[in-house]
């Protein structure tokens, strides 16, 4: 197998898709490092699924290019896709076949998947997503969550270098959502790159090493989770009845204080900048400031997400 270009499992440059006059994906430059768990975030209609379809060779880009596992797509789809497991916009199975028979069929569609180990691999994949007991039931008897799990099992049929999951927690209960998270963790331990899209940041924030944020077809932020968190500067907050004294101590430390009064105390905040947060409390105590509360907060990724993509239920067109 060829090496990934620059250790990137996925790389796109100027990737664009237009549907008629509507631009669904607008010049997206994605860089997904090998071995990462990459969160692909954005509200509904922001272009996540369209991007994923282009990565998988289902949709031809209007312009730009995409490289997956070191090969250009869609030209090398037949070489690349056997090493890619995918769940795209919900599961799709024959209702009149059992879950296991559906997996057999899809595995059989991949010429490179060895038929000798097929039954064992189907069995293992079903076990892994918690469908071990119902693999022989017809899919039409499955609940939405069970179908979603079967879709995950399909992505796990063969050893993969990349797994692409489009909204994998759709239709799952909280327990199922937790299971997906632990499944993704176990995949990364095996060295698989996981590219997971979601419109719910909270569901994947804990498991991602990297993330990108889409808004109305544009990629508005991308990087490691740490990088993204540090886009907003951390702030220090002191709750105290001695607001004025606190502000002057802050001034000597080089912090610009902002005071908001509450009933019996004041809250003094400041951008932390390069000041060592551990030096603040000793300085306040030395100045005999009474401290009722102290915290150093980084803005949450959620704040960034909302700030970049807007809030509310309206789908931005």
């Amino acid at each position: 197998m060829t090496r990934d270009a620059g250790g990137m499992a996925i790389e796109t440059a100027g990737l664009t898709k237009r549907f008629g006059s509507q631009v669904a994906v607008n010049s997206v430059d994605l860089s997904v490092p090998s071995g990462s768990v990459f969160g692909f975030l954005g509200p509904n209609g922001s272009g996540k699924t369209t991007t994923i379809r282009m990565l998988l060779g289902l949709v031809t880009a209007t312009s730009g290019r995409a490289t997956v596992l070191g090969h250009d797509m869609p030209g090398n789809a037949l070489a690349v896709l056997p090493e890619v497991g995918a769940l795209v916009e919900g599961p799709g199975f024959y209702p009149f076949l059992s879950g296991a028979a559906n997996l057999h069929r899809l595995d059989g569609a991949d010429r490179l998947a060895p038929s000798a180990t097929r039954s064992a691999r189907v069995e293992t994949a079903l076990e892994r997503v918690g469908l071990g007991g119902v693999g022989n039931k017809k899919v039409k008897a499955y609940s939405l969550g069970m179908k979603q799990r079967l879709g995950l099992a399909n992505a796990l049929l063969s050893p993969r270098r990349l797994i692409v999951l489009d909204e994998p927690t759709n239709g799952l209960d909280p327990q199922g959502t937790r299971e997906v998270r632990s499944l993704v963790r176990s995949l990364t331990e095996e060295g698989t790159t996981v590219f997971v899209s979601s419109h719910l940041l909270a569901e994947i924030e804990q498991i991602c090493t990297h993330a990108a944020i889409m808004s109305v077809g544009n990629l508005v932020a991308q990087g490691t989770i740490e990088d993204l968190r540090s886009v907003g500067a951390p702030t220090v907050t002191v709750s105290t009845p001695d607001a004025a004294e606190t502000a002057s101590v802050f001034a000597t430390l080089g912090l610009a204080a902002e005071i908001t009064h509450t009933d019996d105390a004041a809250v003094v905040t400041a951008q932390l900048g390069t000041v060592d947060p551990d030096a603040i409390v000793p300085a306040l105590i030395a100045a005999n400031v009474r401290i009722r509360g102290f915290s150093v907060l980084r803005p949450s990724l959620e704040d960034l997400f909302v700030q970049l993509t807007g809030e509310g239920f309206d789908i931005v067109q």
Binding site: L56, L81, V88, G92, A109, R111
Partner: peptide
């Protein structure tokens, strides 16, 4: 219509072969 086409192609079945 059944949503299975994308999974066959991602398997990959190959368009001509399909």
């Amino acid at each position: 219509g059944g949503g299975t086409l994308r999974y066959l192609l991602v398997a990959p079945a190959g368009r001509v072969r399909l």
